[in-house]
Computed example of a mutant assay.
Amino acid sequence: MKTLTAYQEVKQKITEDLVRGRYPMGQALPAEKDLAKELDVSIGTLRKAVDELVAEGIVVRRQGRGTYVAEHDAKRLLYYFFHVVRWDVDKKTYPRVETASFGMSQANKEESLKLGIKEGAPVWRIVTRLYLEDECVMIDHITLDKKRFKNLTRADFDKREGSIYQLYQMRYGQSVVKTNERLRAGLAGKQMSAWLKLKPDSPVLHIRRVALDIQDESIEWRVSTLNTTRHEYFNELVT
């Protein structure tokens, strides 16, 4: 078994505290000197551990105020998890989302693999239409493990304050900290063509995303269909 370095052990301890809820979303971590003393490590070791948590989007530094547990406000959604832009406009626009359908079903083979649940387990299936500047540009098919979201209703989903990820975090304690995505070209079916105002079998982009929590467990499986006539998928890698 690979031995953890000192800063990796510190990172692991902080992560465990976050999972247990010692530091709720939006709350500041203890001051560096206090946390370093508690964990019996140097300031340098602590900072290296926190640097990695910041890089992973789990905590955020606020100039002159300290380090806080990340929460899903509109800015975080837009710059960390939303990657659709007009190809002819160099800016990001906050999306508007409408629910097209909401219901319970049983997980198929793909959904069970992506969510780490048994095939046939109860799941929520949600279809949303995403608008940018009043134009429907993307359709999302979302699958959620019912065990994680036991009392979810369409009314809760429709009347949520903020983003879908904010709903997961604030109502159910399910915090998305990163996503794994795969992109592939495809053709729009009849329903997709109607919603996206495309001719039947027009080319589209399919984005297949697993949203993960701090322990790398799957929270959400989502398949998005993007109209690429005037919009494109955008991602910025920072090293």
Rank of each mutant, 00 (worst) to 15 (best):
L132M: 09
E133F: 02
D134G: 08
E135W: 03
E135D: 10
E135Q: 12
C136R: 10
V137W: 00
V137F: 00
M138Q: 14
M138P: 12
I139P: 09
I139V: 15
I139Q: 03
D140L: 00
D140Q: 07
D140S: 13
H141Y: 03
H141T: 15
H141A: 02
I142D: 00
I142R: 05
I142H: 01
T143R: 02
T143L: 00
L144I: 09
L144Q: 03
L144N: 06
D145N: 15
D145A: 08
K146Q: 08
K146L: 03
K146N: 13
K147R: 15
K147G: 13
R148C: 08
R148G: 15
F149G: 10
F149S: 09
K150G: 07
N151R: 10
T153K: 03
R154S: 10
R154N: 10
R154Y: 01
R154F: 00
A155Q: 06
D156T: 13
F157L: 11
F157Q: 10
D158Y: 01
D158W: 00
D158M: 06
D158I: 11
K159I: 07
K159D: 07
R160C: 03
R160F: 00
E161I: 12
E161L: 05
E161T: 15
E161F: 03
G162V: 11
G162Q: 06
G162T: 13
G162A: 07
S163A: 08
S163F: 02
I164P: 02
I164C: 03
I164R: 06
Y165A: 13
Y165S: 15
Q166L: 03
Q166H: 13
Q166C: 07
Q166P: 07
Q166A: 15
L167P: 11
L167M: 10
Y168I: 11
Y168H: 09
Y168K: 09
R171Y: 04
G173F: 01
G173H: 05
G173C: 04
Q174T: 13
Q174R: 14
S175M: 10
S175C: 11
S175T: 13
S175N: 14
V176R: 01
V176T: 13
V176G: 08
V177N: 05
V177G: 06
K178A: 09
K178I: 12
T179E: 00
N180I: 11
N180D: 08
E181N: 15
E181L: 03
E181F: 01
R182A: 07
L183D: 00
L183G: 04
L183E: 01
L183F: 01
L183P: 06
R184F: 04
R184P: 04
A185E: 02
A185C: 06
G186C: 02
G186A: 02
G186T: 08
G186L: 02
L187E: 03
L187I: 11
L187C: 04
A188M: 06
A188W: 03
K190G: 10
Q191Y: 04
Q191C: 04
M192K: 14
M192C: 08
M192P: 08
M192Q: 15
S193N: 09
S193Q: 10
S193F: 05
S193M: 06
A194G: 09
W195I: 12
W195Q: 13
K197N: 15
K197V: 15
K197S: 13
L198T: 14
L198W: 08
L198Q: 10
K199Q: 11
K199N: 12
P200H: 08
P200T: 14
P200A: 15
D201Q: 15
D201E: 10
S202V: 10
S202M: 07
P203D: 01
P203E: 01
P203F: 04
P203W: 06
V204Q: 01
V204I: 11
